[in-house]
Design a protein around this nucleic acid. Structure first.
Length: 230
DNA sequence: AAGGAGGTCAACCGCTAGAGT
DNA sequence: AACTCTAGCGGTTGACCTCCT
């Protein structure tokens, strides 16, 4: 290898604190990999002490997460992954780490770079808009169905449950709590349902939405999803 | 062949949240 | 409660590469 290039005492690229900066060399990678194999991930600030590697903990973590992790997927983003990125970005915006969690083997950095180079200048794709529209229509349908089904009996049951839960607390506080809980539950439910719309063709996320033909099986699946918070 | 423009991607920076003291 | 430390996040930078003129 190029051992002669690796000079431990070198001040080349050192910052004010004495940390090396700039591109990593294979020897540094090896030290970091050995360290993680031995001690596991985390405690990044101890890497320099234990290995002699003159890199900050932050730099070590980034190198591991974005480049050295064994479960990383090498190679180009596939068309399927591209579609997922587009649609999740339409839903979540620049939450790269959240998007990355939906794409095993891909890093937030990778997705962020990919987005910036491929999509930043372009308008939202039609598929994204279609998925969004599908999702909103189904949500509205579900709410209407639920209204029809749920009668005063259900309402009474809910009131009794509330009495048990909240007892003699201030009614204003209780209502505020309920509004917050409902909003949170709906937010989670919407994200899960939308995720399923997007990921189903690729084998992700269980339950949810099928094709646009409005079949009864599809209806049952959607009902199941909407009922998550029932 | 030279060099300028634009694209790609690894790495850094600054900030924030959460845990620990 | 206040402070410090650490991990993680998104934005930005800069080196390198490829393509075009």
């Amino acid at each position: 290898m190029d051992d002669e290039l690796f000079v431990w005492g070198s001040t080349l690229n050192d910052d004010d604190d004495g940390w090396r900066k700039g591109p990593w060399i294979p020897q540094e990678d090896k030290l970091l990999i050995d360290h993680v194999n031995l001690h596991g991930e985390g405690k990044w600030n101890s890497v320099s002490k234990l290995t002699g590697l003159r890199r900050s903990g932050k730099s070590c973590r980034l190198r591991w997460v974005n480049y050295l992790r064994p479960d990383l997927k090498k190679g180009n983003i596939t068309p399927q992954e591209e579609l997922i990125i587009q649609e999740l970005h339409a839903m979540w915006g620049n939450r790269w780490s959240a998007i990355a969690r939906s794409l095993p083997g891909r890093t937030d950095n990778e997705i962020k770079n990919y987005w910036r180079t491929h999509f930043k200048k372009s308008k939202p794709s039609k598929s994204v808009e279609k998925a969004r529209a599908r999702f909103l229509v189904r949500q509205q349908q579900h709410r209407q169905n639920k209204k029809k089904k749920d009668g005063s009996v259900v309402q009474q049951q809910e009131e009794e449950e509330d009495m048990q839960r909240y007892g003699d607390q201030d009614i204003g506080d209780v209502m505020n709590k309920q509004v917050e809980e409902t909003a949170r539950a709906e937010e989670v439910q919407m994200e899960m349902a939308y995720m399923d719309c997007v990921l189903r063709p690729y084998g992700g996320f269980d339950g949810g939405c099928g094709s646009d033909d409005g079949s009864s099986e599809e209806y049952v699946l959607w009902e199941g999803l909407w009922n998550l918070d029932d």
